[in-house]
Simulated scan of single mutants.
Amino acid sequence: MVQVAIVGPGGVGGLVGALLVRAGHDVVFVARPETAARLNAGGIEVHSVRYGDFTVPARAVALLDAPADLCVIATKATTLQDALERVPAGGAELILPLLNGVDHMEVLRGRYPSARVVAGSIRVESTRTAPGRISHTSDFCLVQLAGDGAASISEWLSGAGLDVTVRDGVAELLWDKLSLLAPLALITTVARASVGQAREMRRDDLVDMVSEVTAVARANGCQIDAETILGVIDQIPAPMKSSMLRDAEAGRPLELDAIGGAVLRAGAALGIPTPATARVVAELGS
């Protein structure tokens, strides 16, 4: 049995945490006081096309008060700093961020120097419909890991039913995800449309952004090309909405800096022009 802290029991953290509880691990959820109270009272209820419908008891706290073997950080980038105030230094041996973007790795390694921060990415369609209520609508839950400690985390997550791959390079893993996520999130949100509509309405912007982001990704060691990413986006079911678009529709803060801003900063540092991405980011930020 592993002691696990889940920071941010939303669509991703709630699902991962509930699966770990069901697998027999000692899991504590770290959340705002009102959310913690709801979880303690009602547990976590999961409705999943893959894992079925199940409910697990949830132990939740507003501040992590005991060391954990693993701390999974699954917040939005926009709430990361607030969430980290709930996790004191020395609170975990291993830290696994399942966050969008690339810049959070440096933040976490600076804040938790005694911990091993393992790079991670997750591909899943999972949404928190209410505190402690998770709707998992994809038949997949794919996790990729890289870094010292990845093998142990892979064993724990695989045992809970997730599909896990361990990769060699941290930067390659993070940019592999961002090369798809950035153009997809930005184009759907700027068009305020599902992926099928957005890739037709703003096709030229999409093609240009894919070209720019993949150029930056390759400069960071990711073996990916624009044609491949564009092909993946073109195969995504037309009704799908990105999480950034859902945030925009709900009036929530956007992860614009973590996703689009990360591309612009890396491009500037490497001398790679990113005019289309900059234009869309500016349009969304206005």
Score class of each variant (00 low, 15 high):
residue 143 V to E: 02
residue 83 A to N: 06
residue 83 A to Y: 00
residue 102 V to I: 10
residue 102 V to Q: 06
residue 112 Y to M: 05
residue 109 R to N: 03
residue 108 L to Q: 05
residue 94 L to M: 06
residue 147 G to K: 01
residue 94 L to A: 06
residue 123 R to G: 14
residue 147 G to E: 01
residue 82 D to G: 10
residue 82 D to S: 14
residue 98 L to C: 04
residue 148 D to V: 10
residue 97 P to S: 00
residue 107 V to C: 02
residue 89 A to G: 13
residue 129 T to Q: 10
residue 145 L to C: 06
residue 139 D to C: 07
residue 82 D to M: 11
residue 125 E to D: 11
residue 150 A to S: 13
residue 109 R to D: 02
residue 93 E to R: 15
residue 116 R to F: 05
residue 139 D to K: 13
residue 97 P to M: 01
residue 121 S to E: 09
residue 125 E to W: 00
residue 87 V to F: 07
residue 122 I to K: 03
residue 114 S to E: 15
residue 132 G to N: 12
residue 99 L to I: 00
residue 146 A to R: 07
residue 90 G to V: 13
residue 99 L to R: 00
residue 86 R to A: 14
residue 98 L to K: 04
residue 106 E to T: 15
residue 100 N to H: 08
residue 154 S to G: 13
residue 91 G to V: 12
residue 94 L to K: 09
residue 111 R to V: 07
residue 88 P to I: 11
residue 96 L to Y: 03
residue 118 V to I: 12
residue 121 S to I: 15
residue 120 G to N: 04
residue 143 V to H: 04
residue 91 G to F: 12
residue 103 D to Q: 12
residue 96 L to D: 03
residue 92 A to T: 07
residue 150 A to F: 07
residue 130 A to N: 04
residue 101 G to S: 10
residue 113 P to Q: 11
residue 141 C to R: 03
residue 130 A to Q: 07
residue 85 E to Q: 15
residue 134 I to D: 10
residue 126 S to E: 08
residue 129 T to R: 15
residue 148 D to Q: 12
residue 118 V to L: 01
residue 91 G to H: 14
residue 141 C to Y: 05
residue 132 G to K: 13
residue 128 R to N: 08
residue 88 P to H: 12
residue 131 P to D: 02
residue 90 G to F: 14
residue 111 R to C: 09
residue 103 D to V: 02
residue 84 L to A: 10
residue 154 S to L: 00
residue 102 V to T: 15
residue 122 I to N: 06
residue 105 M to K: 04
residue 145 L to W: 14
residue 152 S to E: 14
residue 150 A to D: 05
residue 130 A to S: 11
residue 83 A to Q: 07
residue 99 L to S: 01
residue 142 L to E: 10
residue 122 I to G: 02
residue 142 L to Q: 03
